[in-house]
Design a protein around this nucleic acid. Structure first.
Length: 270
DNA sequence: CTTTAAACCTGGTCGC
DNA sequence: TGCGACCAGGTTTAAA
């Protein structure tokens, strides 16, 4: 279930268990993720200290001084803190070991990634060309307006383009457009400055709200199974096809854009 | 440069 | 109960 809020909540959950700890080993049970897990990764990592856990887009970056361990959860991945006595299950593909503590990656669909980058992590091919973080100052109505001037594609697909802004996945794309009152089929370049302001604001609001929903369970943060960020915000439109709009009661419509489902209210989003 | 479709995988659900 | 079709929260890649 990883969209940006889930990844951020996971980051906050794992960092206290990792920061300042020495890596004692790593176990790769299945190297066949989105890209092959690098050979000899355990040897590369052993003895290094995890300085901090950062996030860029939906990538988690474990700063190990001389390099970074890059983790991505794909569509079905999750991380949890457990210990070495816990037997690994079928989809537990990767363990990072820090003494008795284990950071364990579970990912049934194996769209996730475990990579190693020496030196400057932001120069990695996957991170190099990413657009601004939605919750930082680089993303604004002004920046959005400038970025989409020449885009004739539908705003729903453009807002999910990581060159425009990172971290807006399929759920929160629909939710943000609903909050901004913008029809997802609108050509991106047709949006004026004001609507870009509204959309940028909506993206920030929706993501912040979702992080807070996960963060609010921070107290009981580590679930009984050790996983993080187990939360479900109730959506305004996503997965609500045919159900009444929570604002105007007209039925939520589902369409397909760029091979993904989009949900919107035909009345509220003109 | 922009846009589109296919690809990587497994698992759950639905209709017959 | 079984089976096929279809769907799913991401992102790269190639091709148009």
């Amino acid at each position: 279930m990883p969209e940006l809020p889930e990844v951020e909540v996971t980051r906050r959950g794992i960092e206290p268990h990792l920061a300042g700890r020495i890596i004692t080993g790593a176990t790769v049970r299945n190297a066949g993720l989105r890209w092959p897990v690098p050979r000899g990764l355990g040897k590369t990592l052993t003895g290094l200290k995890v300085e901090s856990v950062k996030r860029r887009a939906k990538y988690l970056l474990l700063d190990c001084g001389s390099g970074h361990l890059i983790l991505h959860l794909g569509m079905s991945g999750s991380l949890r803190i457990t210990d070495y006595r816990e037997p690994a299950a079928y989809h537990d593909h990767f363990d990072l070991e820090l003494g008795a503590t284990v950071l364990r990656l579970t990912d049934p669909r194996r769209f996730g990634a475990v990579l190693w980058q020496r030196g400057a992590v932001l120069k990695h091919k996957l991170l190099r060309d990413l657009g601004p973080e939605p919750l930082e100052s680089g993303f604004s109505g002004e920046a959005l307006y400038a970025a989409i001037r020449k885009r004739g594609a539908a705003i729903k697909t453009v807002i999910m383009d990581s060159h425009v802004v990172v971290g807006v996945g399929n759920i929160y794309a629909s939710e943000s457009l609903f909050l901004a009152g913008i029809n997802p089929k609108t050509q991106a370049r047709r949006l004026g400055r004001k609507r870009c302001d509204e959309l940028a604001g909506a993206v920030r609001t929706v993501l912040t709200r979702a992080i807070r929903a996960g963060g609010s369970s921070l107290r009981n943060y580590v679930q009984s199974d050790g996983s993080f960020g187990c939360f479900q915000i109730d959506c305004s439109v996503y997965d609500r096809a045919g159900k009444p709009c929570r604002v105007c009661s007209s039925p939520i419509r589902q369409i397909v854009q760029g091979q993904r489902s989009t949900y919107y209210c035909t009345k509220c989003q003109s």
